[in-house]
Simulated assay, not measured.
Amino acid sequence: MPTALITGASAGLGAEFARQLARRRADLVLVARTEDALNALGAELRSEYGVAVEVLAADLADESGVEKVAERLRDTTDPIDLLVNNAGFGLPLQFADNDIDDEVRHLRVHVEAPMRLMHAALQSMRGRGGRIINVASVAGFISRSTYSACKSWLIGFSRWANAEYASDGVTVTALCPGFTHTSFHERMGLAVGDEGVPGFLWLNARDVVRAGLRDAALGRSVSVPSLRYKLIVGISRSLPSALTSRVARRGRV
């Protein structure tokens, strides 16, 4: 049985990754800050699919939390076959108005933690094989505050790593969804409809995860779920950053 480690697994895309992988009979290591939520999800998946589920409570904004997860990834006696770097959170778009300590924590969770966890995973995957999925965003293709910058870094790093470690049997895929129905926006204090985003732009979490797993299996470095977002990404590359930045202020992907 393959084993997958998923960060940010207690809700949203992370929980959906856990459910779809359990359905495929993968054993799981679930990582999030809230142990109670992880235990509840773990019990559900063990009961429904009969898979082994390990719970690892860790705050990826904290160095000790990242190291706790990295140590599990380096374990060669019970190796991880798939790493899903999904943990994340949003901040208001006005960078100058945000608390700088919140911005630094945001950077740690979205950039430093995935980089360090990838480094740890590669220690046990190289030569043996494995897959890494980094949950980015279509925001990484446009200009929009530090969230966009973090996701852009993750996309670029995933592209490089996918080519660099292909000969070692490791694939790295940046999953770049658009607006997706999860609890992400609720945690930012936004009610449904507050984001100013047309209904046709919203994606279903099941479809996003399915696309990410499919493209990772195909060895693709970037996965953009849905034709409409593929078109948006293509068009955005030819538009001035000042224009895409103004459009992006309508919501958070």
Results as ranks from 00 to 15, higher is better:
S148T: 13
A166Y: 11
A174M: 03
G196A: 10
G65Q: 02
G199M: 09
L45Q: 03
Q123I: 12
P177I: 15
S47W: 11
V29R: 04
T182C: 01
T3V: 12
A205Y: 05
N204A: 14
H110E: 00
K230H: 07
G12C: 07
E16G: 09
S167M: 11
N204D: 14
A242Y: 12
R144A: 10
P114E: 00
E164I: 09
R210D: 00
T76P: 09
G251I: 06
E63G: 04
E35P: 00
A4F: 00
D59F: 00
L154E: 01
I132H: 06
V66A: 05
D168Q: 07
S238Q: 07
V69M: 01
N204Y: 09
D99N: 03
V197K: 04
F89A: 04
S124K: 08
D168V: 05
T173V: 13
Q94W: 04
S148N: 03
L82D: 02
P114M: 03
S148P: 09
A52G: 10
Y147K: 07
E35W: 02
F200M: 07
A40S: 14
R250W: 13
R210W: 09
E35S: 13
A43I: 13
Q123N: 10
V208Y: 04
S221Q: 06
Y165E: 04
V222D: 00
A242E: 14
E186R: 15
F95G: 06
L239K: 13
Y229F: 15
R72V: 12
W153I: 05
R144W: 09
Y147D: 15
R108W: 12
A40M: 05
A161Y: 14
P225N: 04
G50N: 13
G193P: 13
V111F: 10
R252C: 08
E16P: 10
S47A: 09
A15K: 14
A52F: 12
T77N: 11
I142A: 08
